[in-house]
Write a protein that binds this DNA or RNA. Structure first.
Length: 462
RNA sequence: UCCCCGGUAGCUCAAUCGGCAGAGCGGGUGGCUGUUAACCACUAGGUUGGCGGUUCGAGUCCGUCCCGGGGAGCCA
C-alpha cells in the first residue's frame, strides 16, 4: 500500500489493516511506552506517523535501534489520530526491518542541509523532502508533455544521440570515439577518423531538430523528448552538460501557429502541476520561493506578450536602466536585457520574434524584409530564455543562399536540402530546455537540483 | 574562460585588532513526555582545504595551488 493512497482515501481505510513500506524519516520516543515513527515511501511529500507500543509487542529492542534512514515494513490498523499535525496514523501490529542505517554514519539528518552538500551524496539526497518533491514534479511535467502533444496528434519520435553533424550550434560538442586517446594525439589528423568506429568524426547531439524536420515533413506533427549534450565550459545555475530537451516540429505551421503552440504548451504543463502536484508546489512555495504558486498561476492565467526584436530594441533604448552591454540593432540581446523586458516591462512571459538574420542559424526562415528571420525566443521571468524556435526556411533557393552566407556545407547537409527539393512545405518548431522548466516550476535556484544526476564541467559522479 | 565570495567538528555556522578553536544540530549515555524540527542533563568529536612565507605567536596577514558557490559570456 502506497502512503499517498492511504491519505487520499482516509475514511475508506479507517479501522482497516494495511501494510506500508518505506524509509524512516524520524522517530520520537515516549518512555510511557510508545514510539512515534514517521515513514516516507516517496509516493508523496507527507510522512505517515506510525504508533508502536512497546508493551507486549516484542519489538522494544527493534524500536530502540530504529533510526532515521532505516527501511521498514509496518503492518497495522489505520486509526484516527488524537494528536495534532495528522488526521490518521498507523497503529503498528508488526514491524519488519529490511535495512538498518547506522546513525553515526548516515549523512542525512532531520535538519536542513545545504544543496552543495546534498549534491555530493546524490545517491541519498533523493530521500530528502526537496529532492523527492522535485522528482515528483519532474515526473508530472514529463507526463504532461506527452499528454499535451498526444492529445494534439503529435507523434513521439526518437532522434539520434550520436551524430556526425558538428555545426548545428556554435557551442562545443562532445566527441564520440572508440579510439585510444594516446593514438589520436600521435596520429595524422584526417586519416585517423577512418579507423574510428563510424569511419568519420562523430559527436553527441546538441539538438534533434534537423532530424525532427524530416518526420514533420512526413508525419505532419512530431516531437522529441530526449537527452542533449553541450560541452560548453559554462559554470552557471542554468547550464548542464547533459540535459533533456523537448522539440516539437510541425508541418503547415507558421511562426504565429508556433507561438500559439508554445504558449498553450507552457500553460498546459504548468497547469497540470498546479492541479496534480499541489502538495509539492505548496512545499516549494513555503520553503524555497514564497511567490512561487502565485507566479505559476499568473503564467497560466496571463496571455503571453509578443514583440518583435526591433520593438524590443526600441523599448530597451527608451529605458532609463543602466545596462552593461550596449543596446544596438543587430546585437544579440543580453541576459540583462531579457530580464528587464520580462521582469520589469511586462512582468509575464514575453516572446520576441523576427531577429536579425545575421545572428541566427541558417535554417530559420528569411522574412520579406530580407534583414530578419522568423525566429522566436520565449522569455520567462526569473530564468530568462526557456524556449527557442523558428519557422524553418522551406524555399530551396533561399536555404541554399543562407547556407552559403553562413558557410554551411551543402554536401554534409545534402539530405536536409533534399527535403526542400522534394515536396517541401512550410513548417515550424521549437526547443524547450526541460530542466529549466523544472527549475521554474519548483522555484529552485540551481539547475543542478532539477535533474537527479547533474553533469557539469568537472562533475560526472554517480 | 573571466569577475566576485567562500573552504573551521559528521552537518549548518561563529571566533573582536594577529593572542587558550566555539555553538546548534547529529552521535553516545542517562532522564522526561501522545510525540510533531520534541525537551532536559552529561559526554565524545579538530593536522581550521594543500604547500610555502611574514611574525615571539597565524583560523585570521602575504604568495601559490586545489575545491566549492554566485555572477558574466555562451546557450536551452
Amino acid at each position: 500500500m502506497r502512503i499517498i493512497e492511504l491519505f487520499r482515501k482516509e475514511r475508506e481505510y479507517l479501522e482497516k489493516s494495511v501494510l506500508v513500506r518505506g524509509w524512516v524519516r524520524t522517530k520520537r520516543e515516549s518512555k510511557a511506552g510508545i514510539s512515534f515513527i514517521e515513514v516516507n515511501d516517496g509516493s508523496c511529500l507527507r510522512n505517515l506517523q506510525i504508533i508502536a507500543e512497546h508493551r507486549g509487542s516484542g519489538y522494544q529492542e527493534v524500536l530502540e535501534k530504529l533510526t532515521t534512514g532505516c527501511s521498514i515494513g509496518v503492518e497495522g490498523k489505520v486509526v484516527a489520530s488524537p494528536g495534532k499535525g495528522q488526521s490518521i496514523e498507523l497503529h503498528a501490529a508488526k514491524i519488519e526491518v529490511y535495512g538498518w542505517a547506522d546513525p553515526a554514519t548516515y549523512p542525512l539528518q532531520k535538519k536542513r542541509h545545504s544543496f552543495e552538500f546534498l549534491r555530493q551524496i546524490a545517491h541519498l539526497r533523493a530521500r530528502t523532502n526537496t529532492m523527492g518533491a522535485v522528482t515528483r514534479v519532474r515526473n508530472r511535467l514529463s507526463y504532461a508533455i506527452h499528454q499535451f502533444f498526444q492529445e494534439r496528434g503529435f507523434h513521439y519520435i526518437q532522434t539520434p544521440i550520436i551524430t556526425a553533424s558538428d555545426c548545428e550550434g556554435a557551442g562545443d560538442i562532445f566527441r564520440v570515439t572508440t579510439l585510444d586517446p594516446t593514438r589520436i594525439s600521435s596520429a595524422e589528423s584526417e586519416a585517423i577518423y577512418q579507423q574510428d568506429f563510424f569511419g568519420r568524426p562523430t559527436y553527441l547531439t546538441v539538438s534533434g531538430q534537423l532530424q525532427a524536420e524530416i518526420y514533420a515533413l512526413s508525419l505532419g506533427q512530431v516531437y522529441t523528448f530526449g537527452p542533449t549534450f553541450r560541452a560548453e565550459n559554462s559554470n552557471t545555475s542554468r547550464h548542464l552538460a547533459e540535459f533533456w530537451m523537448v522539440e516539437p516540429e510541425a508541418a503547415f505551421c507558421d511562426l504565429q501557429d508556433n507561438l500559439q503552440l508554445a504558449e498553450s504548451f507552457i500553460k498546459a504543463i504548468i497547469g497540470a502541476c498546479l492541479d496534480e502536484s499541489a502538495e509539492d508546489i505548496d512545499f516549494f512555495t513555503r520553503f524555497v520561493q514564497p511567490a512561487l504558486r502565485a507566479n505559476l498561476e499568473h503564467i497560466v492565467n496571463s496571455s503571453f506578450e509578443t514583440i518583435t526584436y526591433t520593438q524590443a530594441i526600441d523599448l530597451l533604448k527608451k529605458s532609463t536602466e543602466n545596462f552593461t552591454f550596449p543596446v544596438e540593432w543587430g546585437n544579440d540581446l543580453q541576459a540583462e536585457h531579457e530580464r528587464y523586458l520580462t521582469e520589469k516591462v511586462f512582468r509575464k512571459p514575453v516572446s520576441i520574434i523576427d531577429f536579425p538574420r545575421a545572428i541566427k542559424p541558417f535554417y530559420m526562415r528569411v522574412n520579406d524584409d530580407h534583414k530578419t528571420v522568423a525566429a522566436m525566443d520565449v522569455l520567462m521571468p526569473g530564468i530568462g530564455e526557456i524556449i527557442g524556435g523558428s519557422q524553418r526556411e522551406e524555399r530551396l533557393e533561399v536555404l541554399l543562399e543562407q547556407m552559403r552566407l553562413k558557410g554551411i556545407s551543402t554536401e554534409d547537409y545534402r539530405w536536409y536540402v533534399e527535403l526542400r527539393e522534394f515536396g517541401t512545405a512550410p513548417h515550424s518548431g521549437f526547443g524547450l530546455g526541460f530542466e529549466r522548466l523544472v527549475q521554474f516550476t519548483t522555484g529552485l535556484g540551481n539547475i543542478r537540483e532539477a535533474i537527479p544526476f547533474p553533469r557539469t564541467p568537472g562533475h560526472a559522479d554517480f
